[in-house]
Nucleic acid binder design. Structure first.
Lengths: 222, 222
DNA sequence: TTTTGCGCAATGATCGATCATTGCGCAGAA
DNA sequence: TTCTGCGCAATGATCGATCATTGCGCAAAA
């Protein structure tokens, strides 16, 4: 929500100046999402600390952030464990996303400009390309970018941070792996939304809501 | 979102077993909301730690939680400071709330039961009483409880946690203090919503959305 | 056999100390 | 005078150690 344009990173020489905590968070996330750490499994702070050659403190902070994300759960004095994701858990996210994005669309509708619309077009094109290439990860990435663009277009920073806090990418990836959820990111579904924005259709919000709800509705295979 | 009924706390002997971090968070929150710590003011971890006779670690954790809440902001290696709340910041919350609660109403509509409806009635009554008594704090509290009840009725735990993460009570209190925002919690505004739920009106969601947006629209006094 | 405590090991919570970065003032160069 | 860079003080980030709680096994009592 901070960068004015989602064009490209400023090409600074990447001096690896991220806080430890962030790297640890990424490490744990990867382990959980990839399924290397099973649901229900204890995550012992010190063990992870030793594994990574750091101390307990940053691991703790990383785990707390992941708890906010819902990827792990913890009880006081009893530690953190990998959440076991029920199908219900994975489904619950879609109505919330849908509501947030409907709000985003409503706010964006009167203020979206050509530049932003062009960005949406680019995301759709990238999605199409990834789909043709059969690159599932890229499809997820560009699909999320499309929706993120709309949220950014709302101009409401709080909405942006709440939406980001949902951790869409993580959950989508997880859904695909755990429940073999269908890959629902296809370019064609997104085009009507851009068109609706272009013509300033008051129903754009509802359209986007249904679009997102569709992700949750038909995508789980038993 | 956890307790099955919002009736009363189980009367255990309160052995003060809350984590330090939580108490610290409450302390800092109170200081910021009451305005004892001015916007933009640095919050030095060690200073707070000394003030409270604890060490730096739990203060740090508490501050991170407050950062999530948006009450303070931080930059890496530069520490935490009290956020300066612009009127825009305070307004941004309402569309987000409105969208979330509209979603909650939609989800709750087919599954809300008499018990829950009765609870809503009780909240409205309590709001009325507080209003009559001129107890502003109680009005805020019961008003929030009303909306929380609806969110809980949605049965979507994620929605509940996202809504809670907005920290409505804190922001409402802050708005009133900083911008002398009107106290908008009056019982009459809430009754039509309960009635809409009772008759299972499909427009309940939209009604609730407009109700919440009304909070943000007319409430700021220059 | 079942129940009730005790005691230990594991580990989360907290602490005090150290490392590393940032901001700033001042001396010297331009 | 204005600009540069050094050095120090403040403080966030991280560490290693200690305190306190939890879970569990085992032995003694019922």
């Amino acid at each position: 929500m901070t960068e004015p344009r989602p064009t490209a990173e400023p090409p600074r020489p990447t001096l690896e100046r991220r806080p430890l905590r962030e790297q640890i968070r990424q490490y744990v996330t990867e382990a959980v999402v990839a399924g290397r750490w099973a649901p229900g499994e204890r995550i012992v702070e010190r063990r992870v600390a030793v594994e990574l050659g750091v101390s307990q403190a940053p691991v703790r902070e990383a785990l707390r952030e992941l708890e906010q994300l819902g990827l792990v759960e913890s009880e006081p004095n009893k530690g953190v464990r990998v959440r076991s994701f029920s199908e219900t858990d994975l489904r619950e996210i879609y109505p919330v996303r849908a509501g947030l994005e409907e709000t985003a669309a409503r706010l964006a509708l009167p203020r979206i400009d050509d530049e932003r619309l062009a960005a949406l077009d680019r995301h759709v094109a990238a999605l199409h390309a990834a789909s043709t290439a059969g690159d599932a990860a890229a499809q997820v990435r560009h699909g999320v970018a499309f929706h993120r663009e709309i949220v950014a277009a709302s101009g409401n920073a709080l909405l942006g941070s709440v939406w980001e806090a949902l951790g869409i990418e993580v959950w989508t990836t997880l859904s695909i792996r755990v429940y073999r959820m269908d890959l629902h990111e296809n370019a064609a579904d997104h085009e009507p939304i851009v068109a609706a924005f272009r013509r300033r259709d008051p129903a754009t919000g509802a359209l986007l809501r249904e679009h997102v709800l569709g992700y949750g509705g038909c995508a789980l295979l038993p």
